Each structure stands twice: as C-alpha cells, then as structure tokens.
Amino acid sequence: MTAATQVPGGSPLPRWLRLAAAILPVAATAAIGSAATQAEIPGWYASLNKPDFNPPNWVFPVAWTILYTMIAIALWRLLGAMPRSGPSRKGWWLALAAFLVQIALNAAWTPVFFTAHAIGAGLIVVAMLLVMVLWTIRLTWRFDRVAAWLLVPYAAWVAFATLLNAAILRLN
C-alpha cells in the first residue's frame, strides 16, 4: 500500500490535535453558513426568481452536511500526510494553505450572498471558491489521493452552486 492511500499516521501532530484542527474550521464554516441563511431563506431568498434547476431548500443542508464531513476527513488526512522533511514539505504547506483559503472562501460566500444580498459579489466569491477547491485537489493529490478524491464531490457541488448563483443573478 502506498503512502497516498494509507490512513494518515505519520504526522508529528498528535491524532487528537489533527482531528480538532480538521473539524474546527469546517464546523465554524458550517455554523457561519447556517447563521447567515436561517433568517434569509423564508424571506429574501424565497422572493428571488430562481432557475428551474434550483433544488428544493431541504437539499442544501443535507448536501452540505455530507460535504462538510468529507471536507473534514480530507483535511484530517492531509494533516496526517505532512512530510517530516525534504523538498516536498514546501509543497505540503502550499496544499494546506490552499485548503485553508478555500475554507475561508466557503465561509465568506454565505454572508455575502444571503446576509448582504450581494448576488454579483457572491458569484465572484463562489467562482474563486471553485478555482481554489480545484487547486486544492491538485495540490493534495501529491500527498494523499484519498483526501483529494474526498474533495471531488465538493468541487462538483461548488460548480453547481456557481452556475446557480449566476442564474439567480441573471434572473434578478
């Protein structure tokens, strides 16, 4: 079995610290998203013109719960794949930085779109998020292929969200 498919265990970080470091930013992102949407769904969002392919509202929390779980596992695996030394360590730090930037963009999109009602700015944020998720997959692949694969459904969902955001902007 290659290092890219093993469950991480070689990291100098204790297992519990890796777990906390993987769960906390993802949970914070989920909490920000939930807080930003709760009051807006029945009022502002319901009043928007939406395309025919807009899913029912119940799909979003189900999809995000699954995706956030996969994102946290991917981050946990990436944290466990940290090289102890050598030139690949720089690449690992870049992969981690990309991962954290895409989490920050994820956390930013919901308040921009839902709280600020800035559909155009939301489209810019979600498009940047898509680029960063794809780049994160590419960079993570080198260190843990399972982690990279865990991010593929997330990339597909963010691509769909980008299309949906663009359609809502066009219709409103």
Rank of each mutant, 00 (worst) to 15 (best):
A3C: 08
A4S: 12
T5Q: 08
T5F: 14
T5H: 10
V7E: 04
V7T: 11
P8H: 04
P8Y: 03
P12T: 07
L13V: 10
P14L: 09
R15A: 13
L19M: 14
P25E: 06
A28E: 05
A31M: 14
I32M: 05
I32Y: 03
G33W: 00
G33E: 05
A35W: 10
A35H: 11
A35N: 11
A36Y: 07
T37L: 05
A39Q: 12
E40R: 12
P42N: 08
Y45F: 13
Y45A: 04
A46K: 13
N49Q: 13
P51D: 08
N54A: 14
P56L: 09
W58K: 09
V62P: 03
W64Q: 00
T65I: 06
T65H: 07
I66Q: 06
I66P: 04
Y68Q: 02
A72T: 02
W76H: 13
W76R: 02
R84T: 10
S88V: 13
G91Q: 07
W93G: 03
L94M: 11
V101W: 01
A104S: 13
L105K: 03
N106D: 08
T110E: 01
T115V: 12
T115C: 02
T115N: 05
T115I: 08
H117E: 14
A118F: 10
I119A: 08
I119M: 11
G120L: 15
L123W: 11
L123V: 13
V126I: 15
M128K: 00
V133Y: 02
L134D: 06
W135K: 07
T136W: 01
I137L: 09
W141I: 00
R142P: 00
V146E: 04
V146Y: 03
A148G: 06
W149V: 14
V152A: 15
P153F: 07
P153A: 10
W157R: 08
A159R: 05
F160R: 11
L163D: 05
N165M: 03
